[in-house]
Amino acid sequence: MRPYVLTPAVAMFLLQLAACGDPEVIRLGFVGRLEGRASEISIASLSAVRMAVDARNEAGGINGRQIRVFVRDDHGTAEGGAEAARSLISEGVEAIIGPNLSVVAGGMVPVINEAEIVAISPTVASQYFVGQDDYFYRINSSTHEVAKSYAKHCIDAGHQKVAIGFDGKNQLYSMNLIHAFDEAFTALGGTLIEFREFNSTIRGDIPRLAIELSDSNPDALILLANAVDTALLAQQIRKHDTEVALLASQWATSDSLLTLGGGAIDGITLLQAYDGFDKSERYIAFGDSYSARFQSSPRFASIAAYDGVTVLFSVIENLAEDESIKSSIDAIGRFQGLQQIVEFDDFGDSTRKITTITVQEGKFIPK
């Protein structure tokens, strides 16, 4: 048998043949916690990303290129975030949506900075990431901004003494918010009488925390936890104090809170970075499509993730040959979101308008 020799003419023909094929897909990564009791906001984010990608692909993709999403579970840890980022970078992703938790971002950000890959987080809020000139972009308001809103709300509602219970597994978020709240609340004349952490994986820790918080005799309790743990904490607290005002972070805003909380969460107040009662045509169309596909209502994580991926669509679509995604985002700076303008400052930080909701008879309603 004669060996086959690849002549220059044949090589050129093969290159031309390849060029006539379909354009290479656009590879986008997604990082989030996809299993366990703290997975709900990541699943909501991924759902919105998939919906946006599918709609764009059905419309022809971006400049004729289809979009493919590569998904990695971060397991809710810094180590998991770092490993998820490395795995996606090895897949050749052009950018990443995620993570949702500040603790995960702590492990992930050094990896994306080294690889010079942009990541846009829908929900990370920790002040730790604010003012850093890096490859990490945040859609959400910072913990300092959110803390000021909670402090003002408490004072306006007549709550002079406040205690806080928080999930110890996400301290990069919780402790930032607590210290900022303490500063803002004290400046307004209030007193943060105590803050205590819990670990939901330890049997009896939630009932223990409920007793300790109730015994501190506060006017209001702020719960910084996911939807499942917030519902369980509220139920335990109501066994000891039926009058204390309850507030929760937007981290807990989901159908699970309503399903699991029962009467214990009636009247609970949540401050949100989105308007679930928006009557604009754009939002109604999004909400109807989302609910029909996923059998649940879109919440803050869905909306912020949708905004994040549409930012990437806009940037990639108009990217010059010698331009990076980071330099393009920085140059444009301002993007139309689903409900609000997404405007990144020089450090990739954004803010959101805060709205207030409460739970009445198993439903979220504006307050």
Rank of each mutant, 00 (worst) to 15 (best):
190 G>E: 06
159 H>E: 06
186 T>K: 11
151 A>T: 04
127 Q>E: 08
197 E>Q: 15
118 V>D: 00
62 I>L: 12
78 A>I: 07
134 D>H: 12
98 G>C: 11
64 G>S: 02
192 L>I: 11
132 Q>S: 14
148 K>H: 03
175 M>L: 13
157 A>Q: 14
81 G>H: 07
191 T>A: 14
63 N>V: 00
107 G>M: 14
85 A>H: 03
107 G>T: 15
144 H>C: 06
65 R>E: 01
136 F>E: 05
202 I>H: 15
125 A>E: 05
177 L>V: 05
76 G>P: 00
60 G>C: 03
188 L>F: 10
92 G>L: 06
169 K>C: 05
158 G>L: 10
125 A>R: 08
181 F>W: 00
155 I>H: 07
108 M>G: 11
164 I>Y: 06
85 A>G: 09
101 L>A: 14
167 D>E: 12
81 G>N: 07
195 F>W: 13
130 V>I: 13
98 G>K: 06
98 G>D: 10
116 E>N: 04
93 V>T: 04
134 D>Y: 04
181 F>E: 01
62 I>R: 04
188 L>Y: 07
170 N>I: 06
147 A>I: 02
71 V>F: 03
144 H>V: 11
105 A>S: 14
173 Y>D: 02
85 A>D: 08
139 I>P: 00
172 L>M: 13
106 G>H: 14
123 T>L: 06
141 S>H: 10
170 N>F: 11
148 K>D: 09
143 T>N: 12
74 D>F: 02
153 H>E: 03
63 N>L: 00
70 F>R: 09
170 N>V: 12
62 I>V: 10
186 T>N: 09
156 D>N: 10
202 I>Q: 15
152 K>W: 04
99 P>T: 15
115 A>K: 09
141 S>I: 05
166 F>V: 13
111 V>K: 12
158 G>I: 09
161 K>G: 08
96 I>H: 05
196 R>T: 15
93 V>K: 03
159 H>M: 12
146 V>N: 00
186 T>Y: 01
156 D>A: 12
177 L>P: 00
172 L>A: 13
183 E>I: 02
134 D>K: 11
150 Y>Q: 07
65 R>V: 08
120 I>E: 07
110 P>G: 15
66 Q>F: 10
80 G>E: 01
66 Q>T: 12
76 G>C: 03
